[in-house]
């Protein structure tokens, strides 16, 4: 792996075993085991996916629903561990997938900034340094000491986005379904992401919209039923995707 590669996905496969019946208690397990009635249905959500993302690159992942995009995102962010293969990353990954993970509704916005920051692996010192910036960006100055159970979903997402982008990550994972607050704030988020790209952050954008990927990305892959069916330059890729599914 050269120093220029920030994320390297090596031959990643993900298998889900779906038990024909779900067993959640010890009693059931023993009974079923004795009767030899535990059977699984295998489902490969991803098979032999490999790609590399270089520094400062905008990488698009295209695919229809059920192609394995979400599974790939979860593996990239470390929520799921792949059945085989590995993901190597050179630097911090900031996933903009689930905003505000680990928020505690009983706590105030101020407390949640530290809690969410810690959940993302940032120390208290780092959060102290970025606190003002986060509050300013989220435009929630007046509500900073309000328990966030009283927040609207838009305020919730704004706070989450501000925390996730406050650090300068090497890799940003963006889900196209990301919608944060109103149109004004949306604009602000896009500007923020562009600004991060200018500072050398690589972006992995997951989408099923050709226009979005074509306008933003330079390289990418197309996923179908968990397999990479095409990889390469973005224009070529989008033409291929368009021809295949329409």
């Amino acid at each position: 792996m050269t120093s220029d590669v920030v994320v390297s996905v090596n031959d990643v496969s993900m298998r889900f075993l779906q038990p024909s019946e779900r067993i959640t208690t010890f009693k059931e397990y023993v009974i079923k085991r004795i009767k030899r009635r535990i059977s699984y249905t295998e489902f490969w959500a991803l098979s032999n996916v490999s790609f590399q993302v270089c520094r400062g690159e905008l990488f698009g992942v295209l695919g229809l629903n059920g192609a394995g995009k979400s599974t790939l995102l979860k593996i990239l962010s470390g929520v799921l561990a792949p059945t085989t293969g590995s993901v190597e990353s050179n630097g911090t990954i900031a996933p903009l997938i689930e905003l505000g993970a680990g928020f505690d509704p009983e706590l105030t916005a101020r407390e949640n900034i530290y809690l969410n920051g810690a959940t993302l692996g940032y120390s208290r010192k780092e959060m102290n340094a970025r606190f003002d910036e986060i509050v300013a960006f989220s435009e929630l100055e007046e509500f900073i000491d309000v328990p966030i159970k009283n927040f609207s979903s838009g305020m919730y997402a704004r706070l989450g986005f501000s925390i996730a982008t406050s650090v300068n990550p090497e890799i940003l994972i963006v889900d196209e379904v990301l919608s944060v607050g109103d149109f004004m704030f949306q604009q602000k988020c896009e500007n923020k992401i562009r600004q991060m790209i200018d500072n050398g952050t690589s972006v992995i954008l997951v989408s099923h919209s050709i226009e979005q990927v074509r306008s933003l990305c330079s390289k990418g892959i197309v996923l179908e039923r968990g397999r990479v069916v095409k990889s390469g330059e973005i224009n070529e890729l989008c033409d291929f995707y368009y021809a295949r599914y329409s």
């Binding site: 530290y114 810690a118 940032y122 120390s123």
Partner: peptide
């Protein structure tokens, strides 16, 4: 290259650990 879920990783999340204990 950082190994996920290792002991060094755990140390990186020590602030979360304190917050969880304090919350309880």
């Amino acid at each position: 290259m950082r190994k996920k879920d290792g002991i060094i990783d755990l140390w990186k999340y020590k602030d979360l650990l304190w917050l969880l204990v304090a919350k309880d």
